[in-house]
């Protein structure tokens, strides 16, 4: 998120010495209800599972072993790589990646169009694009499901106009999941790209045009490199929540579009009931996300130094 970094007007010292008192509630609440729980989750991933949920406090690597290695039905064969769960993670990365590309392809032109309006119209357009984001995510996903179902209004319209003669069969496909993710997180792409385009200096475009660059050459060689930080920020803001998404794959996808979120949920709420395994899968997901964020943070500091 475009959080305010400490700095700027923040070095006022009126309440110097009170920082501890003022930040105590933040440390207590986030420390108690997020930091300690995540640490506990890390510990749980190394414990033994109790049948029907919960754990036995006994160290075990079974959860990770089960995730990565296949030892046969009775656990006595030489271990080979287990592809089931790596496959689910790989599919999630792929789905989230495609949703990000979709968001970029639609979000960049939209952000560009909005940022080149008169200042008064910009706020209106931004409001139009962001209002759906404030509608409950579950409701948006259910609406999408209702619209694209085989018996839904989209198919009814296309059938009655004769454009198609059989329902599209969109629901329960990977495409439906990508559409759902796109629908869930599009504003996360539009807003940072918009912020970057708004600061773009059009003198650069003019200079390029004076040197006989075509419109699309200017876009490719001048504009895109300049607004790249906004695009990367947008891609991360879409990719990260898409990767662990639960609602879109669960409601719009079928058995073949099972993603990480559902895999983890099943270990705690579903019939599978394997807490250490769910905790291990959550740890692996968190590790991937943290690596993405770290790489991003490092590229940011490198760019700031350059």
């Amino acid at each position: 998120m475009a959080a305010m970094a400490p700095g700027g007007a923040s070095n006022s010292e009126i309440y110097k010495g009170n920082a501890g008192k003022l930040l105590l509630p933040t440390w207590l609440v986030i420390g108690f209800f997020l930091l300690i729980p995540v640490a506990l989750m890390a510990i749980y991933s190394f414990l033994t599972k109790e049948f029907r949920g919960g754990v036995i406090w006994e160290f075990s690597l079974t959860a990770y072993d089960q995730f990565f290695l296949n030892r046969g039905l009775f656990g006595d064969e030489p271990p080979s790589i287990e592809w089931t769960y790596i496959g689910i993670f790989w599919r999630s990365i792929w789905q989230a990646g495609l949703a990000t590309v979709l968001c970029l392809l639609i979000g960049f032109p939209t952000a560009w169009f909005i940022a080149t309006r008169a200042p008064r119209d910009r706020t209106i357009w931004l409001l139009i694009v962001t209002v759906p984001y404030w509608v409950n995510l579950l409701i948006r996903t259910v609406s999408m499901k209702f619209l694209i179902r085989d018996e839904g209004p989209l198919n009814a319209l296309l059938l009655s106009t004769g454009i198609i003669d059989a329902p599209l069969g969109l629901i329960n496909t990977n495409l439906a999941v990508q559409l759902g993710l796109f629908y869930s997180y599009l504003p996360f792409m539009v807003l940072p790209v918009y912020a970057a385009v708004e600061r773009y200096d059009f003198a650069l475009s003019e200079a390029a045009a004076d040197l006989y660059a075509s419109r699309w050459t200017i876009l490719r060689l001048v504009i895109l490199p300049v607004v790249k930080p906004g695009i990367i920020a947008g891609c991360i803001l879409v990719f990260v929540p898409s990767l662990g998404a639960f609602l879109a794959p669960d409601l719009l996808g079928g058995a073949k579009s099972f993603m990480i979120g559902s895999l983890i949920e099943e270990q705690f709420k579903g019939a599978a009931g394997n807490w250490p395994f769910g905790a291990a899968a959550a740890m692996i997901l968190m590790t991937i996300v943290m690596i993405v964020l770290l790489v991003y943070a490092r590229s940011q500091t490198r760019e700031a130094k350059a």
Partner: peptide
């Protein structure tokens, strides 16, 4: 904002 929501959910339940 940085921890995926499903991870927060799992961690909270365990806690």
């Amino acid at each position: 904002l940085m921890v995926p929501e499903v991870v927060t959910a799992v961690a909270s339940l365990i806690f």
